[in-house]
Nucleic acid binder design. Structure first.
Length: 566
RNA sequence: GGUGCGGUAGUUCAGUUGGUUAGAAUAUCGGCUUGUCACGCCGGGGGUCACGGGUUCAAGUCCCGUCCGCACCGCCA
């Protein structure tokens, strides 16, 4: 049917007789000649039809946009152009299939409802398709990289077991056993650990995962993870290999040389950026001030509650960024004044008496000012914007404010790529009901811990964990795993998992841990998010062929539906 | 579950303070046109203004509710 792809023909092919197949992208009828543009997955080429060749001309007259056709013709240079461009002189045209006018405009469609309803047509647009070509390059590279280093790709079950903690599961009823259910995997976590016990040593899988939670622009209910696990390694080793992989990937796909990834601890990330996934393209930093405002009078002033763990901190705006500062005051400070946002502008830091302009002048003593200046590098005309609140809320606000100010001041280097590791997450975190939960998952190993502390002060224990953050997106995360039955059980106990459930849900796993489980660690990357970044897409949907809507509906097939009664 | 933004020809959009028969471009259909490349020219068809209610002499426009899409919070790594 076809000798060449439309997009692969070039100047060297002039004179050849070719057969091409594709869709009519453009149709211009000038009366006695007709120009067509025909598109296939590799590109498009112009077809020239002349009335002197009656057979092809009569066929060409019948064509309309998006008809699927075959053209047999001779490659020739375009007439009346100086550039080296070619076209096909049509000898014969076969209509393989007609098409109704499309319900979307392939080259100018902004309406997401309709684009994703007719996604199979949307994908005809070369720009849309290109993202999937890049996605394929990414997976292909990752496979080659890992296989070269002795990783073995092994598939784990899709029909598996529901587990407590973490996200809600997608549930599949069993036909054979009434009232019993499979769950779709949230990740292959337990199975890949079992594979380590098997002695697989290095495993990977490009794995579909499922989480029944609400969607976001970077979250879909089914998504793809690059899932990796290694035996006999410390966390630094796995980080090194993965850093190499991501660096080479960026070089290969977008020709970017990422600098050596910074490593910062979870605590420090919150201290400096208010977030455990900071965007380092934003140069603004946070200055810690909690220690200066411990006294009750300050707490009252800032409306802080006594029993909370509070944080007072400021975003430091160096004067070099403050050319449009009047506007900043207006938009940020005045609007938010009542919402506990305070500011200090340093007029004079050099002399004995420090001069400031501030809406909290009455509570800032010279001593405090001096200490702030001593600890931090603060110059004349620098501004601090303060936030005082319960620690988590304060961090949240600081993160948002840091971003907002970065945008307003136009200092975020959007064209750069900044990758970093955030390590040492706390092993446990308290939920709303004040109950201890694992920050990551139940199998994460504590780091440098003393058994007594684990029992008495579990909140102080950190885990041997690491997240990879690029431009503020969490694109991967992992940890060293527990490889000891007793320790694993201790963790279950600390998060108050009942003994019965421990046995019923995880019994097989704790049993397995007894048979010489090697030390092991792993990581999982969000393939969709990586692809989103590398294709400069705004949403994860752009890089998933048939994504769900925010209401978790498949716009193409309308799933989910009521079961059909047979 | 909550907050915000949006829904007008097939498509992309305009529609002022509520005021005559809801417009444009493009697509589509018919005619003309021998080198177009955003081809051009002439003509035709195409609308339950998401849906349902309310206010009003009068609603695409104002109000309420529902549905759908998107963003965010909760949720989730």
């Amino acid at each position: 049917m076809r000798t060449h792809y439309c997009g692969k023909l070039n100047y060297q092919d002039i004179g050849k007789i070719v057969k091409v197949c594709g869709w009519v992208e453009k149709y211009i009828n000038l009366g006695k000649i007709i120009f067509l543009k025909i598109r296939d997955c590799k590109g498009s080429i112009q077809i020239f039809c002349d009335y002197k060749n009656n057979i092809s001309f009569q066929q060409a007259k019948k064509l309309r946009n998006e008809f699927c056709i075959q053209v047999i013709g001779i490659i020739q240079k375009k007439i009346k152009t100086f550039k080296k461009t070619i076209e096909i002189l049509a000898l014969k045209i076969n209509i393989l299939n007609k098409s109704k006018p499309l319900p979307i405009d392939l080259y100018n469609n902004k309406n997401q409802d309709i684009r994703f309803k007719y996604r199979y047509l949307d994908l005809r647009c070369p720009k849309v398709l290109k993202k999937f070509i890049i996605r394929n390059k990414i997976t292909s590279f990752i496979r080659k990289f890992l296989e070269k280093r002795n990783f073995l790709e092994i598939e784990t079950p899709i029909l598996t077991k529901s587990t407590p903690e973490g996200a809600r599961d997608y549930i599949v009823p069993s036909r054979i056993y009434k009232n019993k259910f499979y769950a779709l995997p949230q990740s292959p976590q337990i199975f890949k650990q079992l594979l380590m016990i098997s002695g697989i040593d290095r495993y990977y899988q490009i794995a579909k995962c499922f989480r029944d939670e609400d969607l976001r622009s970077d979250r879909q209910p089914e998504f793809t993870q690059v899932d990796i696990e290694m035996s006999f390694v410390h966390s630094s080793k796995i980080r090194n290999i993965m850093e190499q992989m991501i660096k080479k990937l960026f070089k290969k796909i977008i020709n970017i040389n990422l600098k050596k990834f910074k490593i910062i601890t979870y605590d420090k990330a919150l201290l400096l950026y208010g977030s455990d996934k900071p965007d380092l393209r934003n140069p603004l930093l946070i200055i810690e001030l909690t220690q200066f405002f411990k006294k009750t009078k300050y707490q009252k002033y800032f409306y802080l509650k006594k029993n909370n763990i509070n944080r007072v901190a400021a975003i430091h705006l160096p004067n070099k960024y403050l050319k449009n500062q009047k506007e900043i005051y207006k938009t940020i400070i005045k609007k938010n004044n009542k919402k506990k946002i305070f500011f200090i502008k340093f007029k004079n830091t050099n002399f004995k008496k420090i001069k400031i302009i501030s809406n909290i002048k009455e509570i800032i003593s010279q001593n405090i000012l001096k200490e702030i200046i001593n600890i931090n590098k603060i110059d004349n005309n620098d501004v601090l914007i303060l936030i005082a609140n319960e620690k988590n809320k304060a961090n949240n606000k600081l993160t948002k404010l840091r971003f907002k100010l970065g945008e307003k001041l136009n200092i975020i280097k959007y064209k750069k790529w900044k990758a970093l590791w955030v390590i040492n997450f706390p092993l446990f975190i308290k939920n709303k009901e004040n109950k201890l939960c694992c920050t990551n998952h139940l199998f994460t190993a504590p780091k440098n811990f003393i058994l007594k502390d684990l029992e008495k002060n579990p909140e102080k224990i950190i885990s041997d964990s690491y997240d990879l953050i690029i431009n503020g997106y969490e694109i991967g995360g992992g940890s060293v795993r527990i490889n000891n039955k007793n320790l694993q059980k201790k963790i279950f106990d600390i998060v108050q998992l009942k003994k019965k459930i421990q046995k019923k849900i995880f019994g097989f796993f704790t049993t397995a841990l007894q048979y010489g489980t090697p030390p092991h660690a792993g990581i999982a990357f969000g393939l969709d998010r990586i692809t989103m970044l590398l294709t400069h897409s705004k949403s994860i949907r752009e890089v998933i062929a048939f994504p769900k809507t925010t209401a978790a509906i498949c716009p193409v097939s309308d799933a989910p539906i009521n079961l059909l009664l047979k």
